[in-house]
Simulated assay, not measured.
Amino acid sequence: MTDSPAPGDTGTVIIIPARYASSRFPGKPLMAIAGPDGATKPLIQWSYEAASAVIGTQGVFVATDDGRIADAVDGFGGAWLMTPESCANGTERIAACLDRLPQADLLVNFQGDALLTPPAFVAALIDHMHANPHAQVGTIAVRCSAETFRHLAEDAAQGRVGGTTVVLDGAGNALYFSKRILPYLPEGRMPDADMPVLLHLGLYAYRRAALERYVAAGATMLETVEGLEQLRFLVAGVPVSVLVLEEQGYPIVEVNNPSDISLVEGILRQRDTG
């Protein structure tokens, strides 16, 4: 089993980190997700197809450490790169691909459980990084609708690990990311224009130097406690530029828990008919 061939042109590549041995949801990338027509595809295929819809990149790769996932990617005609089992998170997994993607100057991390991420968001993030050449890391957040906020609040009330929120400084860089809802809202208060809740999407764009610095910094207490890999950048003093966008008429829910599968399938049907 050998890696898929790397692109030859300088530019942007999209990489989807995917591991089988998740402690919260083992085998998640291979879980069957039903589309609006009832036909099922593995989660990793849904995400790969969404990433492949982005125009102007030099390739899409799944970065994995498991032959079962590589076989699934082969099965739908995708490309993959094998990475070490020792990678602690998706960012490290993408950094492990740097030597096989020597021509890539911008690497986009498209989360394998975020099949609902609009391709237009990926394109907007790439444009944001081109427009801000000094930004080393970029990511996206959306203003929570009432429906998305209720989903986050329900997860919190049931003790489930749901989405991640982010708060920003005046320059649009992340102050902090958390799996708790930030900022705190008084009971009964819904987010609005004066007090928005920003749902962070697990979509990143990195310069090569930022990935190298990330690996050199090593794991930090905050990323370990929160379970949020991007906090290592903040601890290491690497600003994370956040592009804030509006939701696309449907909640952008990730598959964090088995209970999210039916919710995502419902959103796929809603999106197809909307």
Score class of each variant (00 low, 15 high):
51 A>W: 04
43 L>F: 06
118 P>G: 08
71 D>G: 12
205 A>M: 03
124 A>G: 06
149 F>Q: 07
128 H>P: 00
116 L>M: 11
222 L>C: 05
166 V>H: 04
6 A>F: 09
21 A>I: 00
199 L>H: 13
88 A>P: 00
196 P>D: 03
216 A>S: 12
76 F>L: 09
234 L>F: 04
114 A>E: 15
244 V>A: 02
83 T>E: 12
176 Y>R: 15
71 D>Y: 01
73 V>C: 07
43 L>E: 14
214 Y>A: 02
33 I>H: 06
6 A>V: 01
149 F>H: 14
21 A>M: 06
43 L>M: 14
111 Q>G: 15
69 I>Y: 03
60 V>M: 05
37 D>T: 13
97 C>Q: 05
199 L>I: 03
256 N>L: 13
38 G>E: 07
48 Y>T: 09
178 S>Q: 06
206 Y>I: 01
73 V>R: 09
69 I>A: 02
231 L>Y: 01
260 D>A: 04
167 V>S: 10
96 A>C: 08
169 D>H: 07
88 A>I: 12
165 T>V: 05
130 H>K: 15
239 P>F: 03
231 L>H: 09
75 G>A: 15
228 L>H: 05
259 S>P: 00
120 A>W: 00
46 W>C: 07
254 E>M: 13
92 E>W: 06
171 A>F: 10
139 T>E: 04
49 E>H: 08
99 D>R: 14
180 R>N: 14
50 A>M: 10
147 E>H: 07
187 E>H: 11
86 S>F: 03
51 A>I: 06
102 P>S: 09
6 A>Y: 04
85 E>S: 15
189 R>L: 14
178 S>T: 15
226 E>G: 03
223 E>W: 02
70 A>Q: 10
17 P>W: 07
107 L>A: 06
210 A>F: 05
9 D>E: 15
253 V>T: 14
72 A>H: 04
45 Q>Y: 03
271 R>W: 08
256 N>V: 05
196 P>Y: 05
166 V>Q: 03
175 L>D: 06
167 V>K: 01
211 L>P: 02
222 L>M: 11
166 V>E: 01
